[in-house]
Design a protein around this nucleic acid. Structure first.
Lengths: 106, 106
DNA sequence: CAGGGTACCTTTTTATGCAAGGTAGCAAGT
DNA sequence: ACTTGCTACCTTGCATAAAAAGGTACCCTG
């Protein structure tokens, strides 16, 4: 998969999944991987960045299948950002499709 | 506009426009700008890179409105790449939309 | 106690868009 | 003649974000 396509979009993906329910990092990788390829080394720096930007808070929860999981919960700011990014994504895709399709149906 | 979204996509845009007709660099900026924002300083390094990759050939043509224009013509390789990138773009958008929309209609 | 899956994390590398700058041709106005 | 503004080409240095590669540690099974 084209790596460059993902720039900025993974942020939208993380925020979108968290807008439905709380997840821990490893789980986010698995969720996103269902639709687009992502490597584990990508998610943690991304989560840290979004955390620093105040997009979510975290809490730890024990697991019987391994080490404790760090769950992420969206803040109001995070929800706002998700909505804004999603809207911009839709506008962007529309614009690109017009260019790719040739703006008049080939 | 989110700069990151554009990563890799501008390459697809350039190839797509050139798959319809030959253009010169400055013209490509104007065409792309109709739908998504792009700065002039972006197009020339991109054109050089794609040129080095054998995506197109060039020819000069005089203009009465300024300096001579350098037109770009897609090679067979360029057409192939355009089709491949467009297909990947569509797959990618589908995957992202599934994540953003929540995969079940919210 | 070794292996495999879960789960966290960091550092370095690579790719690409942008800002800012430069050169030059041409036309219109003063 | 000179300035302004548009056309049209180009380059250098910076910022960003994903990946590769690596590390730590938990838990269960054989």
């Amino acid at each position: 998969m084209n790596i460059q396509f993902k720039k900025g979009v993974l942020e939208l993906c993380v925020l979108s999944i968290l807008s439905h329910r709380d997840c821990y990092g490893y789980e986010l990788v698995q969720e996103i991987s269902k639709n687009i390829t992502i490597s584990e080394g990508t998610i943690y720096p991304l989560l840290r960045r979004l955390m620093d930007d105040g997009m979510f808070t975290t809490y730890l929860k024990e697991s019987s299948e391994g080490p404790p999981r760090k769950y992420y919960t969206l803040t109001a700011r995070g929800r706002q950002e998700q909505a804004a990014l999603a809207a911009e994504w839709r506008r962007f895709v529309t614009g690109v499709n017009l260019i790719v399709e040739g703006e008049h149906g080939e």
